[in-house]
Design a protein around this nucleic acid. Structure first.
Lengths: 330, 330
DNA sequence: CTTTTTTGTGATACCGCTTTCACATCGTAC
DNA sequence: GTACGATGTGAAAGCGGTATCACAAAAAAG
């Protein structure tokens, strides 16, 4: 059933029906007629047709590197909450960390497909930048700082600095690091810089043999921990860029009777739900992922309303959560 | 730029352009002209306009109760993989376990918004059933068996039966159960029935004081474990409907010096990634979530192609993964 | 009582594309 | 040489809505 059939059924004009579903500039009796007819027929206007003329899709494209990650899931939940309230729906693209899919999704959304875009990316390349600059719809980046664009991000540097400091303050002298891809400015580079700064501020030196780069997985954390402990010199504290990496490293420790925190303190960033039920409850830094998603969505909403082109970067703070894995008396 | 401007730019007719993007019934020289013009202008046809006429949205609605759950994220990843290959995109609705949002999303998708729907639901009510029966687009249910509808589900009964049996075979005599909402036929009812069957088959009796119903969270698992151990009689093995519940229960055990597996064996269903790094590595049953998503998506694709109305229920099998939490010598 | 404004209304052009249709062209069969 | 199907083509009629507009009726202002 289309609008004109429905209008006939309701005994009103096509324009009246259209108004009913839009600005509402309509008398009460017509409104009643239309509502009665909706009740009878279950008529719902076609979204697609509406889009053609009004250029409004009520869709927001969300590009993410994977779904099965607690942090990303929480960000996405936050996004969905805020946008859902405003009647928007999420068009989700999971790029599976595939660079090409990320680019092609941006290309797709750059066109007329959605009213706005939220990008959760790890590594931002020049190609990303140039595509982002050419976006015709408002676009928000969550989880990374990118000058000249609208971003919601975390204080990764502060988080890693303070977690590392926590361990050093307890007397650790041989700090080790398992980080992520440094091309990822947030989880990779910033968390490394924070670690390094804390080490230097404590008057210690950085030992390159105690620095590893892992992928975002437990297995990778396990492997890197193995490598860390393969040398003669052993670290006495370990900062991991993510909880998953830390969990993997912890597994290696258990298998090799490295006591936590007695022999090795471990701290990480992320505060995953499983941290407190790990082999040894893991000290970690809570980042406000869901809030980041909500803030990103709010920022997008305001961008979609106004026409101004002011770019903002919002940085959320963090909470250091101490658990047993760093609970050593200095 | 619209199709007629573009056609002019390319020096061909509007029809030629339309054919280029659709059936491709076109001569090679026109095709070349169009391709050259695309190169120059970056023209992309409007999805919205295309939808109006062709009634094809290339969108699949996915309704899920939450995002930050490993099982759901994995199912959704599987769905995205398969549908992405076929050029479909996912319109995601996170209902946050809100019954009304579930219903209203079904209502929304029942109309002309998407080409197909995949529903991941816990509790299916009569209202769900009647809405599902009235769907005008192909719809697949993942994670639940529902007669008369297309479903991809797990063998929850077999999974819980065998996990329980594993523990009873090792000599446990006082089995306890922490389950989920029994209105959830899969994770709630079937997993309970499997547990009960295993207990009865082992010649034991069901002790109602050893049966708890939890929500899908660690905290809830913790609370229910506390309640289980509050009586005089203590269980010697515990089956939990999900890994999260088990992790919470394990936390209670640690705090109260209940040794695992010596005093209490624990087994669960789900095989979450964190199982092996828990306080005590958790025995669990691996369900093929991602495969379920993939199969659901394939089923949807075949439903969208054909017009027949044959309903199938596909049940996936499972793998029992034994770890330390049940590693007791009977 | 006229003029102006407000409020409500339906006809109709239009959004950007797809589909239908009538027709032109070409190669092949008879 | 004619008949025929296969292939290719552009004009134009939709698809189901929204935006614009002219205009009527009622209310407010003068």
């Amino acid at each position: 059933m289309n609008i004109s059939e429905f209008a006939k059924e309701a005994g009103v004009s096509v324009s009246a029906v259209s108004r009913y579903f839009n600005d509402g500039y309509l008398s009460d009796d017509k409104r009643a007629l239309i509502e009665a007819a909706i009740e009878r027929t279950g008529y719902v206007p076609s979204y697609s047709a509406r889009m053609v003329r009004s250029k409004v899709t009520k869709l927001v494209g969300v590009i993410l590197p994977k779904l099965s990650s607690e942090s990303i899931a929480r960000i996405t939940e936050g996004i969905g909450e805020v946008l859902g309230e405003e009647g928007f729906e999420l068009l989700l693209v999971n790029t599976s960390n595939d660079y090409n899919r990320e680019i092609s999704s941006l290309e797709l959304f750059r066109q007329n497909r959605v009213d706005g875009v939220i990008l959760l990316a790890g590594v931002i390349t020049d190609l990303h930048r140039s595509l982002l600059a050419k976006m015709r719809v408002p676009t928000i980046i969550v989880g990374q700082k990118l000058k000249g664009f609208n971003c919601v991000c975390h204080n990764d540097l502060g988080a890693s600095y303070n977690m590392t400091k926590l361990m050093l303050d307890k007397g650790a002298k041989r700090p080790a690091f398992i980080g992520a891809n440094p091309e990822d400015m947030a989880a990779g580079k910033d968390r490394r810089v924070g670690f390094e700064k804390a080490v230097l501020d404590a008057g210690l030196t950085l030992d390159p043999r105690f620095c590893e780069i892992a992928r975002f997985s437990m297995d990778s954390g396990y492997e890197k921990a193995k490598h860390l402990f393969s040398g003669r010199e052993k670290p006495d504290c370990l900062f991991c860029a993510t909880d998953n990496i830390a969990a993997g490293a912890m597994l290696y420790c258990r298998e090799n009777s490295i006591r936590i925190p007695e022999d090795l303190m471990i701290g990480a960033v992320g505060d995953s739900r499983f941290d407190r039920v790990l082999y040894v409850p893991l000290s970690s830094v809570h980042l406000h992922y869901k809030t980041a998603g909500r803030e990103g969505a709010k920022m997008l909403l305001s961008e979609m309303k106004k026409t101004s082109e002011v770019h903002r970067i919002v940085q959320l703070e963090y909470d250091v959560i101490e658990r047993e894995s760093t609970n050593r008396i200095g």
